[in-house]
């Protein structure tokens, strides 16, 4: 019984530390969002510079969401990575193909 309680305490502590990382993730995402809105709202940056920067900020936010909030950083997510990156690969092809349509 005492062993159970002890391991339970250990898991609780582990969950608590995990939650701290999640809060840092959340704060980072909020900051990135605010930066993205300031870039556009202030109108100080040229279009050529602003668009790639906005896309990079979005990609970093999405990586945080997948790896921390959705736990892809944890063990046992190999199959998950295959499935989501399979989707991402097809998504890139789709957007590339549809964007090429308007260039010509």
């Amino acid at each position: 019984m005492t062993n159970h309680t002890k391991s339970n305490e250990f898991h609780k502590q582990q969950n608590k530390e995990e939650m701290k990382k999640q809060l840092i993730t959340f704060a980072t995402m909020i900051i990135f969002t605010i930066i993205a809105f300031i870039i556009v709202g202030s109108g100080l940056m040229s279009k050529m510079l602003a668009i790639p920067l906005l896309l990079i900020l979005a990609l970093i936010q999405v990586a945080f969401q997948f790896y921390y909030f959705m736990h892809m950083k944890d063990k046992g997510h190999d199959m998950v990575a295959i499935m989501i990156y399979g989707g991402v690969w097809a998504a890139i092809l789709t957007v590339a193909a549809l964007s090429l349509v308007i260039w010509w």
Partner: peptide, 14 residues
């Protein structure tokens, strides 16, 4: 979710 990614990509591309 992998399938959803492709679905939304086609809507974004459009």
């Amino acid at each position: 979710l992998g399938g959803e990614t492709v679905l939304f990509a086609s809507l974004f591309g459009t």
